[in-house]
């Protein structure tokens, strides 16, 4: 209790921002049509996955190029427990998170024990995610390449987490999970383990000289990260009701997860959320521009893939202008304004 009150006091500004963001986001469904609400729910799912990535790569500095591994494991855990054993997704999400954490420990121990760093660690995580994708593609028990479809139920079913007439409930539930994850990262940032993660990220030798066990610190980061991203993957199953190995383990998923904190601001509390919102908005904008361009651009109408090209170009410009993310850019601007 004492520690809780310390946390509240020392992080009051972060928590106030969280309250404001949640308040605004929770009334959003009133203003959005069903399609946009769906988009918004997807944004929140990937923001949650990105928060997980941010703990390992932003806080502890171990760049993962394969977070689809955790995302997919969470998604499959929820799907298999529900379809084969009728286990409620409420429990499935927790189990999925634990599977992600345990897998993170194993992969982390194998890689960090043998000193994998930087690009080599990133490649190892990429390889692990690909291994899982190929394995799941070939295991009949797991639906192989066909994947798993969650059977629809009639009416509202809180045990199976399916809701007939509205997607708003899903939106609010994932928003709640996101809020919990943000509070968790605020707590990590203020605590000893967070301080140790930053130290290991900046200089492992100096960290060890101050009594920090770098291996242990990285393993803790890996398991927390795996847990959060796996829960996001589990929710992906619940929301889209269909998964296959390429959809949840694909390299595209890993890239989607890591782009969000990089665009928003790596190692910050709000970077993953801001990045998720901005990238989704950008994606929708370029898509609608190509689908329905203004008169003077009518020649691009319906040009397949052009929206992706535009998206990529804008992304390149953003990374050049703000290599430390949107939050980093704002921080620099504010500092310049002060001096």
């Amino acid at each position: 209790m004492n520690r809780l009150s310390t946390l509240v006091k020392s992080s009051s500004s972060d928590l106030l921002v969280l309250l404001g963001v949640v308040a605004i986001l929770s009334i959003l469904p009133v203003a959005l049509n069903p399609f946009l609400l769906s988009v918004a729910t997807g944004v929140l799912i990937f923001a949650l996955a990105a928060i997980g990535w941010n703990v390992l790569s932003g806080f502890a500095g171990q760049f993962s190029f394969g977070h689809a591994a955790f995302f997919g494991l969470g998604a499959y855990t929820v799907a298999i427990l529900l379809t084969k054993y009728s286990v409620s997704p409420w429990l499935g999400l927790v189990v999925g998170g634990l599977v992600g954490a345990a897998f993170g420990l194993v992969v982390g121990w194998v890689s960090f024990r043998f000193g994998l760093k930087g690009a080599y660690f990133a490649l190892a995580t990429f390889a692990v995610a690909e291994m899982l994708r190929i394995t799941f593609n070939n295991l009949d028990y797991l639906g192989a390449g066909i994947g798993i479809t969650i059977p629809l139920v009639y009416g509202d079913d809180w045990v199976r987490m399916q809701f007939s007439n509205t997607r708003e409930i899903h939106y609010w539930l994932i928003l709640g999970l996101l809020a919990v994850a943000v509070v968790a990262t605020i707590a990590i940032k203020r605590s000893r383990i967070g301080s140790y993660m930053f130290a290991v990220r900046e200089d492992e030798d100096a960290a060890a000289a101050l009594g920090i066990n770098p291996l242990k610190t990285k393993l803790v980061a890996m398991s927390i990260s795996g847990f959060i991203t796996a829960v996001a993957g589990g929710y992906f199953t619940l929301f889209f009701l269909f998964i296959d190995p390429d959809v949840v383990f694909g390299a595209v998923v890993s890239v989607a997860i890591l782009l969000r904190p990089i665009v928003g601001g790596m190692g910050t509390i709000w970077g993953p959320v801001i990045g998720a919102a901005v990238l989704s908005l950008l994606g929708e904008l370029t898509r609608s521009l190509v689908r329905d361009p203004p008169a003077f651009l009518s020649f691009i109408e319906g040009a397949n893939g052009l929206d992706q090209v535009l998206f990529g170009l804008i992304l390149v410009v953003m990374i050049i202008r703000a290599p430390d993310g949107i939050l980093g850019w704002f921080r620099r601007r504010r500092k310049q304004a002060q001096t």
Binding site: R3, T6, R190, S191, S195, Y196, F198, E202
Partner: peptide, 29 residues
């Protein structure tokens, strides 16, 4: 200490010293 100093460059001075301070105390305050 190191002959060639190794500050945690991305952190503030206070955050640097905090890392050392956490070794024997868990409470952030």
């Amino acid at each position: 200490t190191f002959q060639v100093v190794k500050p945690f460059s991305g952190l503030t001075v206070h955050e640097n010293v905090l890392v050392g301070a956490f070794l024997n105390r868990r409470d952030p305050t």
